[in-house]
């Protein structure tokens, strides 16, 4: 207990000193404010963003809401498609082997490289962004669902059959619960991909959303607002993935939340 307290104290003193040095470095002109806005300026940027907004009128909350909305639509679409499809592919050896190279290839395609194609098809509006997020999440989700279904411990399947379960009942009572930990791992990884893609997607053709905010702020030399935007994206990503971890612990109390992350 005491050791831990000392650790935290030590870390905060060192990090505090670094922040102070940064602040002083700017004050004495060793660092340019524009390039390295110090903590105090970033804090002021945050206040500006919540009151005035940037660009004027669009506050940080509406940027955040826009971004979350886009991610959730793409993410939900990917989940709705990938989970049933993954179950079908994962439970058939032939289908699994037939689709394996396609899935590997689908995953290898850099999602954002689809941006030009998506613009040709869907224009520069909302749909393009949502489709890109959906694409990125879909493959990660799909390969995890397939793996989850495919690698259900055969002993569990045997046990299930021994107790008379088969068909849909076996799938519901044995395969689904056994595959859930991996499905959740996939859901968390997919969300990470979604965050990654949204930032890139929002850098083109919009002024709303956190990705647009950080890009736009740079062109107006408001680097502190860029940094605030980045931090919000980071916090958001962290918060949502922690939330999913809690959800997973509640729904899959028997699973190891880190399984599948370290492979």
């Amino acid at each position: 207990m005491r050791r831990r307290l000392i650790d935290i104290l030590f870390a905060s003193v060192v990090i505090g000193a670094l922040l102070a040095a940064w602040e002083l470095g700017v004050a004495y002109g060793y660092l340019k404010v524009y390039q390295f806005p110090p903590a105090s300026r970033i804090a002021k940027g945050f206040v500006d963003l919540t009151t005035v907004g940037f660009p004027t009128g669009i506050t940080v909350w509406s940027h955040t809401a826009t971004t979350i909305g886009r991610i959730l639509q793409g993410y939900a679409g990917a989940l709705v498609l990938a989970i049933p499809l993954g179950f079908v592919i994962g439970s058939s050896r032939v289908l699994d082997k037939m689709t394996a190279p396609l899935i590997v290839f689908g995953r290898s395609i850099a999602t954002l490289s689809l941006l030009p194609l998506a613009i040709v098809w869907f224009g520069t509006g909302e749909l393009t962004k949502i489709v890109l997020i959906g694409y990125g999440c879909f493959w990660v989700m799909l390969s995890n669902v397939i793996a989850g279904v495919k690698y259900v411990d055969p002993v569990l399947l045997k046990a299930g059959r021994a107790y008379g379960a088969s068909g849909i009942e076996l799938a519901r009572t044995v395969v689904l619960p056994a595959a859930l930990p991996r499905i959740f791992a996939g859901a968390r990884m997919a969300l990470g991909v979604g965050f990654m893609v949204i930032v890139g997607a929002e850098m083109i053709g919009t002024v709303e959303g956190l990705g647009a905010l950080i890009m736009e702020a740079r062109t107006f030399y408001r680097s502190e607002i860029t940094i605030v935007g980045m931090l919000i994206i980071g916090v958001l990503g962290f918060a949502i993935s922690t939330g999913l971890m809690w959800l997973e612990r509640a729904l899959v109390p028997w699973g190891d939340p880190l399984a599948g992350v370290r492979r």
Binding site: L112, M196, G234
Partner: peptide, 18 residues
Amino acid sequence: ELLRPIPPLAWIPLAIIW
């Protein structure tokens, strides 16, 4: 841990500034 959740692409504006 603070910087890790920030997607690399979100650094593009700062990268250009720096």
